[in-house]
Design a protein around this nucleic acid. Structure first.
Lengths: 112, 112
DNA sequence: TTCGATACCTATTTCACCTAGGTATGATGC
DNA sequence: GCATCATACCTAGGTGAAATAGGTATCGAA
């Protein structure tokens, strides 16, 4: 009908992951903890959400990986590519637009 | 794992519908148009989203209905109950919390 | 009389996310 | 010596809100 198809609501895990990785490279397990801490326990995406997401972002060329073993444990570090940076910009913009729109509707006492 | 389960993102159609109905009673088709116009075409929930939602909100006691025929066409007007008002308050609060959390993560240059 | 707008409806599909497992290593405690 | 927890990776399968895609019927305009 009008503007819809790809639900504008989705992509928040993706948005947060890209945002965190924009500052510095991180590994999956670290990202899971970071989101939880950064959101003050409010948001807790499980590994089952983050790992598949990282894989698909890598497939899309938004992230590159680097493997490193630390203390006998293998870590996969992710880094944002220019493609990923562009994706982040788009998602952040969409998020802001959505919020502005909804905030407007929630606030307005008018509307004929 | 942590705070998650019922995807915090959902419920936006419900939030908007309840918000619109808080001001005045409206009928389904009218709500579909109102959301589109109020969002300046940015959000366009189809009838297939709104009607089932209205029905489930009525089942939950959040809305009451009144049927009226206008110009040979039957309209079903919906009105918010106290239960629905409470639900609206909860959803609005959740939405604000979520936005605050995400905005914080998007903004912060810090985070150890 | 064909078409679009109005006004209602629901069956089906999709897909993002959630759940719930699995493997393996290192450190801690008993 | 052995259980247990945190670390660190992984994926198969289920769920459910929303998206898609239909359907019925009336009215007005071209």
């Amino acid at each position: 009908m009008a503007t819809s198809q790809s639900s504008f609501l989705n992509g928040v895990p993706e948005l947060l992951v890209l945002r965190l990785l924009r500052d510095r490279e991180m590994y999956g397990y670290e990202i899971v903890q970071a989101i939880r801490e950064a959101s003050d326990e409010a948001i807790g995406f499980a590994e089952g959400v983050i790992y598949p997401l990282l894989h698909s972002l890598e497939r899309d060329g938004a992230l590159t990986t680097r493997r490193q073993t630390v203390n006998g444990r293998s870590r996969v570090y992710y880094r944002v590519t220019p493609v990923g940076a562009g994706r982040l910009a788009v998602l952040a913009e969409q998020w802001h637009d959505l919020h502005r729109t909804i905030a407007g509707i929630l606030a307005e006492p008018r509307h004929a």
